[in-house]
Amino acid sequence: MQKNGFPLDELDFAILSCLQKDGRMSFTVIAEKLNVSIGTIRTRVNKLIEEGTINIIGRVNPAKVGFGAYAQIAIYVRPATLKDKVAQKIARLPEVSFLAMTSGDYDLEVDVMCRDNDHLVQFINEISKIEGVYQTKTTLYFKVYKYAQPDLNLLK
């Protein structure tokens, strides 16, 4: 199967699924689960990392480490020609966990994690000063029920 210009086969997807469940799973355990050699797993994982298909990181639970204000901000950009420039500036801000260009009423959608509401207000004031940011609409997440990676089985 061709994904993003890189050919991925069933073994690649099986490896990715294992690592999604446990990013620290050893090559030995993965090899045993998939009935292939450790060398094959090592080679495939290194290739997946090299190609940017996977990035192995420690994922933090925001609420458990002190982020009390988790919000989604819709941003309207005027003129529209400044969308990319505005997005690039916002992407550099450390509070940003997700940023996308959207269709519909607003041009950009950004998810942010802030210490508290005061920090969130400071963040909104900061992005409001960026040239091209015309309007923002903030939705505060009271409780996050699911925070996950995509289910690779949906591609089958």
Rank of each mutant, 00 (worst) to 15 (best):
Q72P: 02
K64P: 00
E50F: 11
A69T: 11
I73Q: 10
V77H: 05
R59G: 03
I54N: 06
V77C: 09
A69W: 09
R42I: 00
I57K: 07
A74I: 13
T81H: 07
P62D: 04
T40P: 03
V86K: 07
V45D: 02
V65D: 08
R78T: 12
V77M: 06
G39M: 07
K64T: 11
N55K: 15
R42C: 00
L48W: 07
V86Y: 06
L48I: 08
F67I: 07
V36G: 03
E50C: 08
K47A: 11
A63L: 02
A71W: 14
I41W: 02
R78I: 13
T40G: 02
V60R: 06
I38E: 01
V60C: 02
I54F: 04
L82Q: 15
Q72H: 14
T53K: 10
G52D: 12
K85N: 14
A80H: 05
I56V: 12
N61F: 01
T40K: 05
K64I: 05
A87G: 02
G58A: 08
V60M: 09
V77E: 04
R78V: 14
T43G: 00
I41M: 03
G66K: 01
A63G: 00
A80S: 10
T81G: 09
G68V: 04
Q72K: 12
A80I: 05
